[in-house]
Amino acid sequence: MQDLLRPLIVLGATVGVTLLVGWAADRMLRAADRRHPETPLWGHLRRCQMPLQVVLASGAIQASYDCSGVDIPHRGVVLKCVALVTVASTIWLMVRMASAIAETSLARFAATTRDPRRVRRFRTQLAMIQRIAAFLLATVAAAVAILVLFPELRTLGASILASAGVLGVVAGVAAQSMLGNLFAGLQIAFGSSVKIGDTVVVEGEWGVVEEITLAFLTIRIWDDRRLTMPVSYFNSQPYENWSRGGTELTGTVTLHLDHATPVPEMRAQLRELLEYRKDWDRRSWSLVVTDSTPTTIQVRAAMSAKDTDDWWTLQCGVREELLTWLRREHPYALPRVATAPAPVAPDGRGVRMIPQQDDDPA
Rank of each mutant, 00 (worst) to 15 (best):
V173P: 02
L8T: 05
A107I: 00
M266K: 02
G197I: 09
T261Y: 00
G16E: 00
R271G: 13
G69P: 08
P341E: 03
D291G: 15
S68V: 08
D33A: 15
Y233H: 14
D281Y: 12
D358R: 15
R34L: 14
C48I: 12
T113N: 06
A345F: 05
G165V: 10
R154G: 09
A158Q: 10
R267N: 03
D360N: 15
R47L: 14
V253F: 00
L257G: 02
L147G: 05
D307N: 15
P51N: 13
T213M: 01
G76D: 10
L217E: 00
V15M: 07
S64Y: 09
I146M: 12
S284G: 13
P37V: 14
W280I: 11
M303A: 15
E152G: 09
V77Y: 03
A110F: 00
S89F: 07
V289F: 04
L5D: 00
I61T: 14
G317D: 12
P151L: 10
T254I: 07
T228V: 15
G16K: 03
L227I: 04
T90Q: 01
Q125T: 07
D258H: 12
L19Q: 08
A362D: 05
A175G: 11
R114E: 05
P346L: 13
G43D: 10
D198Y: 08
E240H: 13
V288C: 01
R226E: 00
I91E: 03
I72E: 00
T228C: 05
S159L: 10
A98F: 01
Q62T: 10
D115A: 05
A340V: 07
W242I: 08
S192E: 10
L93W: 11
P7V: 04
R46L: 09
L45G: 11
L287V: 10
L4Y: 02
A142N: 09
L274A: 09
P264L: 01
F135H: 08
T308W: 06
T296R: 13
R117V: 04
A302Y: 01
V169R: 06
L274G: 06
A133L: 12
L217N: 03
A138V: 08
Y239T: 08
W206F: 10
S286D: 14
A164D: 01
A88Q: 03
L314T: 07
A340P: 00
E205N: 13
V54A: 15
R225Q: 02
L314M: 10
P230E: 06
P361I: 07
